[in-house]
Nucleic acid binder design. Structure first.
Length: 347
DNA sequence: AATGCGGGGAG
DNA sequence: CTCCCAGCATT
């Protein structure tokens, strides 16, 4: 038995019952694949269910407001996925009559659809023979064949894609692609893989050479950047002030309190000299009723040092620029970063 | 070719 | 703590 036969046999017995596997609907497959980009299956699952329930077809998604889409995506991270998802839904409706293209090349043209996702949709929905190479496949192939080429290099991507292509079961691209990812995910795990019971353990190079823990090889390690956010939580009766984050930064198009970013940790005394205070309050009276402890919010390559200034005012300020009042009853419709959600959950 | 983009689970 | 997860867009 060859590599692909072993993978296929293992999969037929050990596969999980995942909701998107019960469909050949390109829309649902696309939806699930975008949700699962850099996201574990268990984490993405409830979001998939929510999106299918709220947007049963691509027409429903295309007709929605971006705020609604982002709100449903809230908490999942990498929000450009949600923005691109919405954008692409509108393209599919306007330019493709609601029908997804059925070739790898055409799928690749869609925003938010890269080589992996295009291959996944093409094979799962349309039985196109094109290999999926995700994190699971990189790991499995690098270990089984003992390939030390860095998976995050240009040549690495080419090498592994070529290899994955040669190994494919040409007759069952949809099932085979699911199978190799499932195998990588459940058997050839990043830490503590199940080598003892692995059906490939007789011919695995990494196992033979004691290199399982060294592969796959990655070239880059990204440095963590520290940022200091001072949020101003301005309350008047049951309302508070919010704004939309624009600009190319984290949490684009999500909402937050007015805030000041500084390059270093800053004392309240210095923060309060920032122009934002006169911008917001002008000559109105305000009172700082609480200053939170610094809270660390860790992202993959940033650590946000957050402090919340809780301020009360005696009348509803006239707001300009991007600021606006929201009531406690209505603020839930705005998508907010996890950091904001955690703060608001205590209110 | 290199960098930025979230949040959470596992070890 | 560190690593990594059904990656992609941008430069």
């Amino acid at each position: 038995m060859g590599f692909s036969d072993i993978i296929m046999d293992w999969y037929s017995i050990n596969k999980r019952d995942l909701p998107w596997r019960n469909s050949h609907d390109a829309y649902k497959i696309w939806l699930s694949e975008v949700i699962l980009q850099q996201t574990r299956v268990e984490q993405g699952m409830p979001y998939y269910e929510k999106f299918v329930a709220n947007f049963p077809t691509v027409f429903d998604l295309a007709a929605a407001h971006e705020d609604t889409v982002l709100k449903l995506w809230q908490g999942l991270g990498y929000y450009s996925r949600a923005r691109n998802l919405h954008h692409t839904a509108k393209i599919i409706v306007k330019e493709h009559q609601g029908i997804f293209p059925d070739s790898f090349e055409e799928l690749l043209k869609l925003k938010g659809v890269g080589t992996y996702t295009a291959a996944a949709i093409a094979s799962f929905a349309f039985d196109v023979v094109v290999p999926v190479v995700d994190g699971n496949v990189f790991r499995l192939l690098s270990r089984y064949f003992g390939i030390e080429t860095a998976i995050d290099s240009h040549t690495g991507k080419k090498v592994f894609n070529e290899l994955a292509k040669e190994l494919m079961d040409q007759r069952n691209p949809a099932i085979y692609n699911q199978a190799i990812m499932e195998f990588g995910s459940l058997m050839c795990k990043p830490a503590n893989p199940n080598c003892e019971i692995c059906p490939l353990n007789q011919s695995c190079v990494a196992l033979k050479t004691d290199a399982v823990n060294k592969l796959p090889y990655k070239a880059k390690t990204t440095a963590v950047r520290h940022r200091f956010f001072s949020y101003i939580y301005i309350r008047y009766k049951n309302r508070f002030v919010m704004m939309k984050r624009t600009g190319n930064d984290i949490w684009k198009n999500l909402y937050q309190f007015p805030m000041i970013e500084t390059k270093k940790a800053m004392t309240p005394k210095k923060i309060m000299k920032d122009a934002i205070w006169t911008d917001l309050f002008k000559n109105e009276h305000y009172q700082i009723v609480n200053v939170s402890q610094e809270e660390l919010h860790k992202l993959s390559h940033q650590t946000i040092h957050a402090i919340f200034y809780e301020v009360t005012v005696e009348k509803a300020l006239d707001l300009d620029n991007e600021y606006f009042w929201v009531s406690a009853k209505h603020h839930h419709q705005y998508a907010v970063p996890k950091l904001m959600e955690n703060f608001l959950a205590d209110k």
